[in-house]
């Protein structure tokens, strides 16, 4: 028995996610979901979305979204150069670099 699916149905989730939807978000997130895993992943995610769907029952009209718990405003930084050149140290962390550049497989624009 898959508790998640039942929960999703109870919460009136329109439909569990289908494979093309999983493909789309996996592509956006640059993650691979193999055809073998797609069903399982879709079920798990649908289950989570079912949990999330409890929110839909609540009337939030007129409630201002809260992006941040702090009721504060952005501090401004003085326009000063505080960083020094650490290129050699930082490039050393890169999996692939050459001539001071980070390397990626050739990009065609």
């Amino acid at each position: 028995m898959n508790l998640g699916i039942i929960r999703a149905r109870e919460a009136n989730l329109p439909q569990p996610l289908n494979t093309p939807e999983i493909d789309k978000i996996a592509t956006l997130a640059r993650l691979r979901v193999s055809p073998g895993e797609a069903g399982e992943v879709a079920a798990r995610i649908s289950e989570i979305l079912g949990l999330i769907d409890q929110m839909r029952a609540v009337d939030t009209d007129g409630v201002e979204p809260l992006a941040h718990p702090l009721d504060a405003v952005q501090r401004l930084r003085a326009d000063e150069v505080s960083e020094t050149d650490r290129r050699e140290e930082l490039l050393a962390l890169a999996p692939a670099s050459r001539d001071g550049l980070f390397l990626v497989p050739k990009v065609i624009e």
């Binding site: 930084r77 326009d79 000063e80 150069v81 960083e83 050149d85 290129r87 001539d99 001071g100």
Partner: peptide
């Protein structure tokens, strides 16, 4: 003089990645 969100110099023409900090 410095970047939008960091204190790294924005001077033009520096050696590659010499003005790229953490």
């Amino acid at each position: 003089r410095s970047k939008l969100f960091s204190g790294t110099s924005t001077a033009f023409g520096a050696a590659p990645n010499s003005q790229a900090n953490i």
